[in-house]
Design a protein around this nucleic acid. Structure first.
Lengths: 208, 208
DNA sequence: GTTTAATTAAACGCTACCGTCCAATAAGTG
DNA sequence: CACTTATTGGACGGTAGCGTTTAATTAAAC
C-alpha cells in the first residue's frame, strides 16, 4: 500500500517553477499581458516552452499564477506596526514613513502601473491585489486609530474615516507623481518634514 | 501672388482626422500601445490604413497625437472654481464634490489606468498628462487656499502642503479602489457625508 | 535495470500585424 | 475644363507569437 504518492516518476523541478514565475513577472510587467511573449519568458527562465504549457496550460493561467505569487510576496513585505509602546505622534510618524517608503518603492510602483491597466481585462486580479495590499494596510490603520480613540488619545470619531484622512493627507499629491512621472524624482519630493506636517495637522483635527 | 495656400488641391477631410483619433483612443485604451492594431483603428474609423500613415507616419506618432488630443479635451473639462462669493465651507465642499465626480468618471479612470502602464515606455506623455490634469488642479487648489489664508479665513500655513492635505483627505482610499476594482461599485462609496467629513476635519486642522 | 513522468529541442500550421507600394478614384481649386 | 492632392482597396514581404506535436533525453522511484 502506498500513501497517495505516485511510485515511480521524475519529480517536478521546483527551481524551474520559480524561475518561470520570476521571468513571467519581468516579461508581463515590461510588456503587459497582451504583448508579453511566452517564448521570451521560457528563454529567460532557461526552460522549454512546453514546460510552461505543461504547468500553466495557457497565457491567462500563467499571468494569474504570477500575480498571485507576487501578491503573496507583497503581503509579506507590508510595513508592520511596532509592538512597543511609544507616543502617539511617534507611532504615526513611523508608520507613515514606512508606508511611504513601501508605496514609493520601484517594485510597488511597477506593479501598480501595470496592474491598473490589466484590471480591465482581469477584474478578479484587481480584487486579489487590493486584498493582498491596499485593503490590508487600510485595515491596519483603521484598527490602530480605533485603538487610540479607545484609549482617549484621539477624538472619538469614525475610525474608517479618520484612516482615510490620515492616509490621504500623508500621500497628498505624491502618488499621482509616482505613477506618471519618473519615480526617482517623485520619491525625492517626500521629505520627513512634509510627512510630519501631515501628521501634525491630523493630530490637530483629531485632538481631544 | 498667392498667400501661402496651395492653389489647387483636395482639402484634408477633418471629420476623418477626428474619427481616426477617436478610434485610436478606443483601440489604444482597450489594448495598450503595443498590441493596439492600426488596421483595427483604420477599420473602426472607416478610413484606409494609408490615410493614417499619411498623417501620422507611424504608431508612436499616432499614439502621441491621440494622447495630446485627449489631454486637451480633459483640460477643457476640468472642474472650475466658481466666482461667486460664498462661505468657505461651501466653497470647499463644492470644489471637492466637483473634483471627485471628475476623478471618478469612467473616461478619466480609463485614461488613468492605461496611461499609468504606458508611461514606462513614453515618459514624456506622462508629463503631458500631469501638466494637463493633475498639476493644473493642484495649482488651482493651492491658489484658492493661499487666497483664503490671505483673507484670514484659514490659518497661515504652507498652501502647497494644505492643498495636499485637503486633496488627500477628500480622496482617502477611494482612488485606489477606483483604479483596481469595478469603478461603478467604487464610485458609489463616495458619499456627500464622507466628503463633508473630510472638509470639516480639514477646517478644524486649519482653523484660525 | 526497469518504470514513470518531467523536460527538451525543433518544427509545424495558423493568425495577425507593420509599414510600404501601386494603380485607381474622389474632391476640391483655378 | 485641367490640376493637384486626399483617399482608397488590395497586395506584398517580413516578423512574430501562440499553442501543439513529435521523438528523444533525463532524473528520480522501485
Amino acid at each position: 500500500m502506498n500513501t497517495g504518492k505516485r511510485l515511480a516518476h521524475r519529480p517536478v523541478d521546483q527551481a524551474k517553477q520559480d524561475a518561470i514565475l520570476a521571468s513571467a513577472r519581468d516579461e508581463f510587467f515590461e510588456y503587459g499581458f497582451e504583448s508579453a511573449s511566452i517564448e521570451r519568458i521560457a528563454a529567460a527562465a532557461n526552460v522549454s516552452k512546453v514546460t510552461i504549457y505543461n504547468h500553466f496550460q495557457n497565457k491567462e493561467n500563467l499571468f494569474s499564477a504570477m500575480v498571485g505569487s507576487e501578491c503573496r510576496i507583497m503581503r509579506g513585505n507590508l510595513p508592520e506596526m511596532s509592538d512597543e509602546e511609544m507616543p502617539l505622534r511617534t507611532e504615526l510618524v513611523n508608520f507613515a514613513q514606512a508606508m511611504m517608503e513601501f508605496l514609493s518603492s520601484p517594485d510597488i510602483i511597477r506593479f501598480d502601473r501595470r496592474m491598473a491597466a490589466e484590471v480591465e481585462r482581469h477584474p478578479e486580479l484587481g480584487e486579489l491585489f487590493l486584498n493582498a495590499g491596499p485593503r490590508l494596510m487600510q485595515k491596519m490603520l483603521i484598527e490602530m486609530l480605533a485603538c487610540e480613540m479607545e484609549k482617549g488619545k484621539l477624538a472619538k470619531a469614525n475610525p474608517q474615516e479618520a484612516a482615510a484622512h490620515l492616509f490621504g493627507s500623508v500621500k497628498g499629491f505624491a502618488d499621482v507623481e509616482w505613477r506618471f512621472s519618473d519615480p526617482k524624482k517623485a520619491a525625492a519630493s517626500v521629505t520627513t518634514a512634509s510627512l510630519e506636517a501631515a501628521i501634525d495637522r491630523f493630530l490637530l483635527a483629531y485632538s481631544t
